[in-house]
Simulated scan of single mutants.
Amino acid sequence: MVGTKWTDSGLRHDRRGLKSREANTDRPVPIPPVLVAMIRAHIEEFGTATDGRLFANERGGVLGSTSYWRVWQEARPFALPRTRRIPRSPTARTTYGTPASPTG
């Protein structure tokens, strides 16, 4: 499987907590009420993964990074105004719409 040689466990995804935080702690993230309503509607319609994650793959596992990438590519035109979008080119290195640093 792709990626297994890069994890400590030999599995596709290592289970780990948040960086610089104690194990089993949360990280509160304030979000606007409209987003809360959207997330609640999503949970009402689709539920959550068995471990409580909001999104899971078709077998209930962790979503791969390519899935996030594909969704972001589709959502980008709706989420970002045209003036904030970075043109795509085969030579431009970007991460989710953020240009690479000139030295990177």
Rank of each mutant, 00 (worst) to 15 (best):
G10H: 05
L11H: 09
R12I: 14
H13C: 13
H13L: 09
H13Q: 10
H13I: 08
D14R: 04
R15S: 09
R16L: 08
G17I: 01
G17Y: 01
G17D: 02
L18P: 02
K19P: 03
S20V: 10
S20F: 14
S20D: 15
S20A: 13
S20M: 14
R21E: 09
R21M: 15
R21L: 08
E22C: 05
E22K: 14
N24Q: 15
N24H: 14
N24C: 06
T25F: 01
D26F: 15
D26K: 12
D26C: 06
D26W: 10
R27E: 07
R27D: 04
R27H: 14
P28A: 02
V29A: 04
P30R: 04
P30I: 01
I31Y: 09
I31T: 06
P32T: 08
V34T: 11
L35G: 10
L35V: 09
V36K: 06
A37N: 13
A37E: 12
M38G: 11
I39Y: 08
I39D: 10
I39V: 12
R40F: 07
R40T: 04
R40V: 05
R40Q: 14
R40H: 10
R40M: 15
A41M: 12
A41F: 07
H42M: 06
H42K: 03
I43Q: 07
E44P: 01
E44T: 10
E44M: 06
E44G: 13
E44V: 02
E45D: 14
F46A: 05
F46G: 01
F46N: 08
G47N: 00
G47E: 00
T48W: 03
T48A: 02
A49W: 00
T50H: 04
T50W: 03
D51M: 00
G52W: 03
G52I: 01
R53I: 08
R53K: 03
L54Y: 01
F55R: 04
A56R: 12
A56M: 00
A56D: 03
N57G: 12
E58G: 12
E58D: 14
E58P: 06
E58K: 15
E58R: 15
R59A: 13
R59V: 13
R59K: 15
G60H: 00
G60D: 00
G61R: 00
G61M: 04
V62Y: 05
V62L: 06
L63T: 02
L63W: 13
L63A: 05
G64H: 11
S65L: 11
T66Y: 09
T66K: 10
T66D: 15
T66M: 11
S67C: 07
S67K: 09
Y68C: 15
Y68S: 08
W69Q: 09
W69G: 05
W69V: 10
W69L: 15
W69D: 13
R70P: 00
R70L: 15
R70Y: 05
V71L: 13
W72M: 07
Q73H: 06
E74R: 11
E74M: 13
E74H: 15
A75R: 04
A75T: 02
R76G: 00
R76Q: 07
R76I: 11
P77L: 03
P77Q: 06
P77W: 09
P77D: 06
F78T: 06
F78M: 10
F78D: 11
F78N: 12
A79S: 15
A79Q: 02
L80V: 01
L80I: 01
L80E: 11
P81K: 07
R82E: 14
R82P: 12
T83Y: 14
T83M: 11
T83I: 07
T83E: 09
